[in-house]
Amino acid sequence: MHKIISILILTVMFFSCGKKEVAVNKSGAQINGAGATFPYPIYSKWFNEYAKLNKDAKINYQSIGSGGGIKQITEGTVDFGASDSPMSDEEIEKANSKNNNSIIHIPTVIGSVVLIYNMPGTEGNLKLSGDVIAGIYKGVIKKWNDPKIKAENPGINLPDKEIIVCSRTDGSGTTYVFTDYLGKVDPEWKSRIGVAKDVKFPVGQGGKGNEGVTGLVKQLEYSIGYVELVYALQNKLKYAEIKNAEGEYVLPTLESLTLAADNSISEMPDDLRISITNSKGKNSYPISSFTYILIFKDQKDEFKGKTMKAFLEWALTTGESFAQDLGYAPLPKSVSAKALDKVNSIKIQ
């Protein structure tokens, strides 16, 4: 009996050893990334599609949030990070000195933040200007039939109801893009509330994550909230046309987002860190942003470096065609050329 058991144990051990060895050889190729939740749908699509082309390229992405992505790449615990807002000078300095390397920003797609609202019994799209949005989120504009909202929406029958303001309660790139826009159109917003991933909103209530805010707006009549476009589309919620810098009311579409990026290109610095909210151009949508992959310039692991480089090249060319279906806009040609240059500058040691 004892013999049989020990033989059994030995066999099990033998096989599990064998399995492990095979797994190690293969999973040595595992590339880890972490960061923004906002581009997660398209990134996971990319990793999936790319793995079909290149079986060794196993890329694992954790959507823990932009701030988390920056933290992890700074600590060197992941091979690449991802963030909706570019890293600040301070953050770059910290990451570079800690890893004795230099970080580069590679824009991947353009995303937009929309204002979703729940107003039963109205037809047509609500039109909002940055001024009014700031007023609502500051708590100055309290009711839907406020003269300021009325002035912009002559055709809509606005109810005499209090506006229920919903915002993100967790730190997020979405909030950064939103407050970045409000900071540009309203100086008081910038000085009193600020531009950050996590700000203290004077009014309203908070939901956790895009899905949390979507849930609140969906459930609460006469509410307004801000989320990424894809959440509004998936939940079939109405979202407002926003007045841009040229005074036109625009919806986020492929064209209006690409235009917003195109119009900012002349101001784009060499490190590609730029905010494209409230950008010029008659048809550009004002609350949009690039989302970035953060990666170190000197790649120490040959396999990982090569794979990431090949992957990014593929993503910025073939991969961009998946963007539209998922609610993102692909990079304009001019930007993707610059992004590809950045990819090519990655050195493998």
Partner: peptide
């Protein structure tokens, strides 16, 4: 609306800058 200690930790810790 209000806020609890456990919630604020869960909400803000991941992105605390």
């Amino acid at each position: 609306p209000a806020y609890t200690m456990a919630s604020v930790i869960a909400n803000e810790f991941a992105e605390a800058s």
